[in-house]
């Protein structure tokens, strides 16, 4: 499902498409039940992200994207289906595996600073704390060097001794990214990283994430409700009703005049057994309901609404 991208970012670290994906969800289901009421947050979601990719996951609120991220970050357990992240099977992880997973395979950036950074530690101390948790074998001098490197990479070296309360929103998020990648994870998960920021700052932060993805080859998944984010990433996956519905892939093409053009192609996601979701406007404009007729053409599949007069589903003949 991933078409060849000639000039997409991260190509340097992307192995061939046949390599193990860093994130792989197959028919992922998550049901919440409370006092007899069930909520299906994820209804058989499929997703595959290869190493080194930078992907945005877009969906309206209630679409299940926060749930997906909770599962992928091992803070929640799926009800059914499989999910693999960075080589770990998320279903049935032992606590020890979970600790290992969080320490060295995965990094998170949340929307609220209070979930990313300890408010009583400075930026440098936050990173050092993350390193200390992992029990990194670097000498103390090594710690300090790594902290400085990370801060410089994200462009917030001047914030090394400042507490989160003393930094701007953009600086906070960049420090959060630095903390997330401190232990050299394979995958970086971000939940609405630009949710609280204005457009200019958002652009800076996204640029920083692109930098990290480019330089360090960290597979990055950004979950957001803001469609504007998708302009900065090569691949955007849309979630609707607990399933991935469409993907948009951006590429730059040279047109006939030799000018660079960024082209976005939208695709519908097809799962293992051939199910797909039709976009809302298609369904609404043709009044598609209950049943549709399919026809196979040499180079496409046609979808027609059912003829009028046939009994509705649920009515008896």
């Amino acid at each position: 499902m991933t078409p060849e991208q000639a000039t997409s970012p991260g190509a340097a670290h992307r192995g061939n498409a046949g390599a193990e994906p860093d994130i792989s969800c197959v028919d992922l289901v998550r049901i919440f039940s409370h006092q007899g009421v069930e909520v299906q947050a994820l209804q058989g979601l499929n997703l595959r992200i290869d190493p080194g990719e930078l992907v945005a996951l877009v969906g309206a609120s209630g679409s299940g994207k926060s749930t997906l991220l909770s599962i992928l970050s091992s803070l929640d357990q799926p009800t059914a289906g499989t999910a693999h992240v960075a080589g770990f099977d998320l279903l049935g992880m032992t606590p020890r595996q979970r600790v290992e997973f969080r320490r060295s395979r995965v990094g998170f950036v949340w929307q609220q600073t209070s979930r990313n950074l300890l408010p009583y530690l400075s930026a440098g101390e936050n990173i050092a704390a993350t390193l200390a948790i992992a029990g990194a074998k670097h000498a103390r001098a090594g710690h300090a060097a790594r902290v400085e490197t990370l801060l410089e990479l994200l462009g917030v070296g001047h914030c090394a001794d400042r507490r989160p309360g003393e930094m701007s929103g953009g600086e906070q998020q960049r420090v959060a990214i630095a903390v997330a990648i401190a232990n050299e994870p394979r995958v970086l998960l971000a939940d609405e990283p630009t949710g609280e920021l204005d457009d200019a700052t958002s652009a800076h932060v996204l640029e920083a994430m692109r930098e990290v993805n480019r330089e360090l080859g960290v597979t990055t998944l950004i979950v957001t409700h803001d469609p504007a984010v998708s302009e900065h990433v090569a691949r955007t996956v849309q979630i609707r009703d607990g399933r991935t519905s469409t993907e948009v892939l951006r590429s730059t093409r040279t047109d006939e005049h030799g000018a660079q053009q960024v082209v976005a192609d939208e695709y519908a996601v097809l799962d293992r057994v051939g199910r797909m979701q039709l976009p809302d406007e298609f369904v609404a404009s043709l009044g598609l309901r209950d049943r549709v007729r399919l026809a196979l053409e040499p180079d496409h599949v046609g979808v027609w609404p059912a003829p009028a007069g046939e009994p509705e589903r649920g009515e008896s003949k």
């Binding site: 969080r102 320490r103 209070s114 979930r115 704390a129 993350t130």
Partner: peptide, 12 residues
């Protein structure tokens, strides 16, 4: 809050 954060960052 702080301890949850540390757990998320991999504290055993």
């Amino acid at each position: 809050g702080a301890l949850r954060l540390l757990t998320a960052r991999g504290a055993s």
